[in-house]
């Protein structure tokens, strides 16, 4: 799976984003994290191979995540579905 790492000054949280490369809200989410200098990793699920897509499906199903992209996972614990700046700020202590 092609995971992209974005460097940032704020690296105290592990932030992972399941995104779609074609989606406006996914783009806004990446921009929000970049603007706030948050280090994060993301994967554009639509660019994955078929096997990887099914793997993402299994991961999200196991976590019982609402499937609206983007899905942002903070410290492997807090799951935020969609572009929700207030929830990002709270989870990341911004």
């Amino acid at each position: 799976m092609i995971t992209v790492r974005v460097e940032g000054e704020r690296s105290e949280h592990g932030v992972f984003v399941f995104a779609l490369s074609t989606c406006g809200w996914c783009k806004r989410t990446k921009e929000f994290l970049r603007e706030n200098d948050v280090a994060f990793e993301y994967v554009d699920v639509d660019k994955c191979t078929m096997d990887e897509k099914r793997e993402v499906g299994r991961i999200l199903k196991e976590r019982d995540v609402p499937l609206g992209f983007p899905v942002t996972i903070v410290d492997d614990e807090v799951v935020i579905s969609g572009f929700k700046p207030d929830e990002f700020r709270e989870a990341l202590g911004l």
Binding site: K53, R54, K61
Partner: peptide
């Protein structure tokens, strides 16, 4: 949600 999940698992 079940249709979203069907989509993800049907990827292929």
């Amino acid at each position: 949600p079940e249709m979203q999940m069907r989509g993800l698992l049907a990827a292929g």
